[in-house]
């Protein structure tokens, strides 16, 4: 299986795992800013949907 296909099949799961690790690390360091009712529930939306969407758009723009 090619890495591209592997990524396509498991992209969402990997992004959630990344979100968990990054959030716990950021929360450990920046407790007040990160570990709150606003940032916490919105964080997966940022990592799993918004950032990949922005990156895809940027890549598409560079490719043109």
């Amino acid at each position: 299986m090619s890495p591209r296909r592997l990524w396509r099949d498991h992209e969402e799961g990997v992004l959630y795992a990344v979100a968990v690790v990054v959030y716990i690390a950021l929360g450990y360091v920046f407790k007040t800013i990160v570990l709150n009712w606003i940032v916490g529930p919105l964080f997966p939306l940022l990592v799993v949907y918004l950032v990949p969407t922005w990156l895809r758009r940027l890549r598409a723009r560079w490719a043109r």
Binding site: Y16, A19, Y28
Partner: peptide, 28 residues
């Protein structure tokens, strides 16, 4: 302008927040 993937991430957000908070504060 959120498609289903974004809405699901929003829905799972509370579990994510609760679960991660346990580990972050335990490490602290």
């Amino acid at each position: 302008h959120l498609p289903e993937r974004g809405l699901v991430a929003l829905y799972r957000g509370l579990l994510f927040y609760g679960g991660c908070r346990i580990f972050a504060w335990t490490f602290y």
